[in-house]
């Protein structure tokens, strides 16, 4: 009986936490709708968030994209002709770069860089009673602290995914020229004939979903800190762990929806 009661308590706690999280997400969406109608100082927070999350991650994002694209190009151009399927290289490149790895790796980079930063920053603010101060002066912490980070992370995810595609599909071409010279016209023509809007929007849809997950999970874990400073790194770890799991689950779900 004790085991059953323990399971029941755990289920109730999880359900309660899930409902709390959904309520938090609803509030974030509601405040996001109001964000652009208000001339708030939150706009500056948004710009800074995009600068840190998007612009500063561009370098590592570009290096990853070029490296993966070049690897696929080199492997594909040497392996696929053996099976008489050279034209499949473009399909593989698009599937890997645009549909799958582009949004996924970008989300991992943003989670590792910005997710932990957001969670620890908000956790520190909670410990320092700054959140209480915002509430005391009439500022909604979700509206001022969460929404700019939410929008900033989502926009950064979308923009970085576009850059990942550019660097992965075109930047890698420059690297491949050293190994297997191919006319740019031929490469671009074949690539653009194979690439479809569905591929592009598939990647952007995943980027949008992953951006929402990373920002909401990170801010939620930041606010989950109560009073001890030792809870702050735990919040960062939880933000990264939960974000990774949810990103992978969401990736599978979005892929299933697209291919179903």
């Amino acid at each position: 009986m004790a085991i059953i009661a323990a399971i029941g308590r755990a289920a109730r706690t999880k359900a309660s936490g899930l409902l709390y999280g959904l309520g938090f997400f609803y509030n974030v969406l509601k405040e996001t709708g109001r964000f652009f109608r208000r001339k708030q100082v939150g706009y500056k927070v948004l710009i800074m968030q995009i600068l840190f999350t998007g612009y500063e991650a561009l370098a590592i994002n570009a290096v990853m994209a070029i490296a993966i694209g070049a690897a696929i190009n080199v492997i594909g151009s040497s392996l696929l002709p053996q099976f008489g399927q050279s034209q499949l290289m473009y399909s593989i490149l698009i599937v890997v770069i645009t549909r799958e790895l582009g949004p996924l790796l970008t989300a991992f980079v943003i989670t590792a860089r910005s997710g932990t930063a957001i969670a620890t920053q908000l956790g520190t603010m909670v410990v320092n009673h700054e959140i209480e101060a915002y509430i005391a002066v009439g500022l909604n912490p979700i509206s001022y602290l969460v929404v700019p980070r939410f929008i900033g992370v989502v926009v950064s995810m979308l923009v970085l995914t576009v850059y990942f595609n550019i660097f992965g599909l075109l930047g890698s071409f420059i690297v491949v020229q050293a190994v297997n010279p191919t006319p740019i016209g031929e490469y671009l023509g074949a690539l653009m004939s194979t690439l479809t809007l569905a591929d592009v929007f598939s990647g952007l849809t995943k980027a949008l979903v992953f951006g929402v997950i990373v920002s909401v999970v990170s801010t939620f874990q930041g606010f989950a800190v109560n009073r001890a400073s030792t809870e702050i790194p735990v919040a960062g770890i939880k933000a990264v762990g939960s974000s990774f799991i949810l990103i992978i689950v969401a990736d599978v779900l979005v892929t299933l929806v697209q291919y179903a």
Binding site: L88, S91, I94, V95, T194, T196, L197, A198, D199, F201, S202, Q258, Y259, A260
Partner: peptide, 9 residues
Amino acid sequence: YGAMREGSF
């Protein structure tokens, strides 16, 4: 190539 387009938006 064809399978990708079956999931078209």
